[in-house]
Structure formats: C-alpha cells, structure tokens
C-alpha cells in the first residue's frame, strides 16, 4: 500500500524519462533511420566519400568491403554511395506520391461524404471506379501516355493509392457526422458549414497524419516496382527501384546489387510504418 505513495513522489524529469523508456526500441530505430534518410536527401555528400558517378572499371562487381560497404556495381561505382545519392529521388517520389494520394483522397472522400446528393454520388462512384481499375494497369496507361519519368511515377502511384484512403476518409467523416456532438451543435442552431469546420473535419481527420506516414512507405515500394520494370526514372539516376533493375543482370555474380537496395526499401517502408503506427495509436488514445 505504501508503494502508492512512493510512486506519487519522484521528479517530473524522472517521470518523463520513464515515459520515454516505455516506448518500443523499434520506434527509436525507426526514428534514427528516418533522420539518416533526411540527411541523405538534403546533403548526401555528408554521408559519402566517393562520387556516385565516378567510374572505376578495375573495381567492378566487388563484394562488400571496407572501402565499399555495399560492394560495387558493373562500372565499379560504390553501391553504398549510389544508394545514399538515390535517396533523394526515391524519397521525393515516395513522399510526393503519398502527398498526391492523400490529397486526392481527402478531396474525393470529403466530397463523397459531405457534398449535396448528386455531387456526393458522383464522387462516390468515381472512388468505386478507381478501386475496380487495377492500379498497375492504370500506372502503365499513364506512362504510355506521358512517358517514363519521376513526375509520371508520382502521378501513377498517387492515383493508385488514392481510392483506398478516399474510402477511409469518407467513412471517418460519415462517422463524425453521426456523432452526438454534431447533433448537439445542430440543436444549438449552428450553421452546417460551422459544424463541418469546427467538429466534423477536425475529428474525422485525426488519423490522417498516421495514414500519411503509412502511405509513404507504401508509395516507395510502389515506385520502386515501377522503376524495376523500367517504367520509372532512367539511368544513370540511382533511384532504388532503378538500382534493383540494373542489378538484376548480375544476380548470380553480384547478388548484393539486388539484395542491398531491396533491404533499404524494406527498411524505409518499415520505419515509416512504425512511426505511422505509433502516431496512430497515440491519436486513438486521445493524447
């Protein structure tokens, strides 16, 4: 029973530390990795010593070593250097596609849930149509029309992921619309627009931050698959999907050319998902 008293005392600092130590270690790893990625995007030269395009045929297809921790490719370029310098392309595409996807979803979802009948119905059906259309086919169509480029990739992946999130946002808004506090505000005589702004959107969009973080990981994987199929950024850019594609030819002699970029993509997706999940669970707890 005295344990209660013991717990009540104790400095704020100690409590804060205790709270931090309760976070899963995976989250720390994810955050550390995200910071590293950020540096790679903003200033890749800080993390590398070689140039990503310096060719050295004498050192071609070398396995991981001290000088080249990820090994070298067919032109003797360090894979580590190329991965770091490729982060900017890969992440720009990933984040850009996630932004586009969530923004489109936000628009479609809100219209479907909030607009007057005919407009809502059109938005609703449009989401359904996007859903039924195979995403890969949609991406191929866009690339066929606009040609392979980073921009096309962003567009293709963004549109491909939008319907899922649109449906989620629509559901969230419809749920908030039926909440007791919306009815209470109606009974107070507040206007529809005021209620949407003050209650429905803020409550419905609480999970959006988390959704966005989850979407980044997914988009990077998606964009990499397109690049891998040769439908994305063209060489010599070292976007990760393109690295995978290039390494495919040397799968037997130099498996690290495929395995390591693959692992990096997995790590990015994992860390974005871990951070997103954490944000989501915190929001759900209402903190």
């Amino acid at each position: 029973m005295t344990a209660i008293d013991a717990r009540a005392s104790g400095s704020d600092l100690r409590q804060a530390l205790a709270r931090l130590s309760r976070l899963p270690w995976g989250l720390y790893l994810a955050i550390a990795f995200a910071v590293l990625l950020l540096v790679a995007v903003v200033a890749p030269e800080l993390l590398t010593v070689h140039s990503p395009t310096a060719v050295d045929y004498s050192a071609a297809l070398k396995p991981p070593s001290f000088a080249h921790p990820f090994g070298t490719d067919e032109s003797g370029r360090g894979l580590y250097t190329r991965v770091v310098w490729g982060a900017r392309d890969s992440l720009t595409i990933g984040v850009g596609a996630a932004l586009l996807g969530v923004a489109a979803a936000l628009l479609l979802g809100s219209v479907a849930a909030l607009a007057v009948k005919p407009a809502a119905l059109v938005a609703d059906r449009f989401i359904e149509i996007l859903f039924t259309f195979p995403s890969l086919l949609l991406a191929l169509l866009l690339i066929a029309i606009m040609g392979p480029s980073a921009g096309t990739e962003v567009l293709a992946v963004g549109i491909g992921t939008a319907p899922g999130y649109a449906r989620m946002i629509r559901g969230q808004i419809l749920g908030a619309k039926n909440a007791g506090y919306v009815e209470a505000a109606t009974a107070l005589g507040h206007s529809r627009w005021r209620i949407v702004r003050a209650h429905i959107l803020p409550n419905a969009l609480r999970p959006l931050v988390a959704v966005f973080a989850l979407s980044i990981g997914q988009s990077i994987v998606w964009a990499s698959s397109l690049s891998f199929l040769g439908l994305g950024v063209a060489p010599p850019a070292s976007e990760w999907g393109a690295l995978l594609d290039a390494g495919r030819e040397y799968l037997v002699q130099a498996p690290w050319l495929v395995v390591i970029p693959g692992l990096v993509i997995v790590a990015v997706a994992l860390s974005a998902t871990t951070i997103g999940r954490h944000i989501q669970s915190r929001l759900e707890k209402g903190e």
């Binding site: 007791g180 506090y181 209470a184 003050a198 409550n203």
Partner: peptide
C-alpha cells in the same frame, strides 16, 4: 449520454 454530445477535443 453527455459525453458523446461533447467534442472530445
């Protein structure tokens, strides 16, 4: 149920 009639935020 007053709780549900208040915006939780």
């Amino acid at each position: 149920d007053p709780l549900s009639s208040f915006d939780p935020r």
